[in-house]
Write a protein that binds this DNA or RNA. Structure first.
Lengths: 185, 185
DNA sequence: CGCCGAGTTGAACTGAATCAAGAAACGTGG
DNA sequence: CCACGTTTCTTGATTCAGTTCAACTCGGCG
């Protein structure tokens, strides 16, 4: 549910906004390993995951690199493209059979143009993902491979059961072999 | 000048917004090594640098870590605090005698409440700094110390002349010794 | 049954950290 | 304008976390 993106639900205008979002969002189902968005295209949707799990990834020197994960109640998109309206370097892949709510950029834009009072919530959303990203930089700078792995598992306890080791390894910036060794203690 | 933060100046509403910002921003001068914001306090300002150079930094295990640099026409703040309205872990230090425009959070908020059509520009600003941050993650993941150094110097060609080696080293996540060796080819 | 993708394990290698010491630059007061 | 102390930068030796490459194991599935 889209609401879960926001922490402060006391604001009645927020509720109104979320209801409007629900109204314009479209529900879609994806089969395991299906791509909800492909690299090189402009990504027109923000995806809210109702059930399942997804990742964005790209290729760097021929290697498949996971940029983000999202699970139930989380959101994900090819953020470079969604924000900047240009071709994305990311693809968005579903790692299990997954149901998502798709929020289209043009429709969101339309809504924001009509009711600029909603911009505030988009801002809060951006602020949140910004802070998350800053945290990730700090993790990369100051934590060892093992610590980064432990932090990830803390944040997504069931990730290990749900996705390939290689995807997790590239997400935390280490090789699959190292992750395998870490896991085996 | 605040305008320089934005790429698309064709929008007349943006010009209007920038003019209003100029109106509420306050100009201040800082002496070299002065702290414009101190760790542990809530940071109430976004700083636009007219002349000079500044950095945000924090202490990690007793070490001074630079989180960001900004030079002429750039902006900087203790972003965690400015966004989330809580005590900041960053301090903001001026590295030369510096003149900045201070935009106060409460006044910005007030302006946005009055004229929500301006929210859009705040969103664009956030989107921009988000993309910058994402780029930095990629740099940390995939580039060697040397390459990260070269990328930084490309982005801020005069940084090396203006700030201590140690500040640059911590910003790109390497030790000062390594940076010294890199520089000496 | 044999293949295939995913995960594990081993050995050699390497980029960068750390520790330690010395050199250079900087600024402050006499 | 020089002398001194402090800060900044360099250089060397050693160590280590993590990579790479390669071989091997395991489980599922046609």
């Amino acid at each position: 549910m889209i609401l879960n993106q926001f922490t402060d639900l006391s604001d009645p205008a927020l509720l109104e906004f979320v209801n409007e979002l629900q109204g314009i969002a479209e529900k879609r189902s994806y089969k395991k390993n299906e791509l909800a968005h492909e690299e090189g295209k402009v990504c027109d949707h923000l995806f809210f995951i109702e059930k399942g799990i997804a990742r964005t990834f790209y290729f760097k020197d021929g290697k498949d690199i996971t940029a983000h994960f999202a699970t139930e109640n989380g959101s994900i998109t090819a953020i470079d493209s969604f924000i900047q309206r240009k071709r994305s370097k990311y693809s968005l892949e579903v790692l299990e059979d997954t149901e998502m709510l798709l929020l289209s950029y043009p429709r969101l834009q339309e809504l924001l143009d009509q009711k600029p009072q909603y911009e505030k919530f988009v801002r809060l959303f951006l602020e949140q993902i910004y802070v998350d990203l800053a945290q990730r930089i700090e993790n990369l700078l100051f934590y060892t491979a093992k610590e980064r792995y432990e932090l990830l598992i803390e944040a997504f306890p069931d990730l290990l059961q749900r996705v390939n080791l290689g995807h997790i390894a590239s997400y935390i910036g280490i090789s699959q072999e190292t992750l395998s060794r870490i896991r085996g203690n």
